[in-house]
Amino acid sequence: MSTDNERERDEEAANLPEKQGRERLNAPVRRTGMFGATTTGDTSGYGGLRVRGSAPARSRRPFTDPDDPRTADFDRVADALEAALGEGEEGSAPKASVERVEVALGELTFHVRREALLEVARVLRDDPSLRYELCTGVAGVHFPDDTGRELHAVYHFRSLTHNSEIRVATTCPDADPHVPSIVSVYPTNDWHEREAWDFFGIVFDGHPALTRIQMPDDWHGHPQRKDYPLGGIPVEYRGATVPPPDERRSYK
């Protein structure tokens, strides 16, 4: 695995600027223009601006940065996870279950294929060198521009034994919003998964009772998705009307 990595890294280093430019142009357009006005009224000249998101970040080993104490045990955790998932040989489980690893801002993120989520969760909890006893729940995130991976389910795990914290992220497309439930491993995720279903419409397969939790039972739609409007109403005050926050002219 390491030789493979090194070769990739050398190749990347050789044509870095070109590669970065290409990645940038392939990244989805996050927003256009600079001000809220999309038709007339924008005299700033910034109307044609196209701001692209960044390409998915992928970190290379070593994950531990000697200058950043927050990253001290990242290599150990990654090794332990790799070993526990039975990886090591090329093309076997680790590559299959963990798509990529991202180290940013002193946090370690494993991007896990959704099929492997339950297995990864079980290993994270049970493996003696990992022992992530505490799952602090799942947060849904909606990226409408991230085609094919619109819905993200983000889990944070905390190990009390090793005093370590990691993030596991998995994605599913809008058309097939299914993610396996990890309630059987972490019972605490029961309500958190119901909340993510309620707000984002992510279906957690295998959840014992996936029903709405915050919204009324007969509510339509999943209100915290980006394609669901904020739902505010215009406020009238002494003849003037203040539009709701999502319809006001504003900076982006």
């Binding site: 996050r30 927003r31 701001v51 998101g53 960044s54 602090t136 729940g137 947060a139 849904g140 995130v141 909606h142 990226f143 983000v154 944070h156 605490t188 309500w191 958190h192 909340e195 915290q224 900076y251 982006k252």
Partner: peptide, 23 residues
């Protein structure tokens, strides 16, 4: 816990709170 996602703009893309009472 507070989980914040930014898309590089002046407003959050998503903020999620892990509230202890909820759990």
């Amino acid at each position: 816990g507070c989980y914040a996602v930014s898309d590089g703009g002046t407003r959050p893309h998503r903020v999620h709170f892990r509230d202890p009472s909820f759990t």
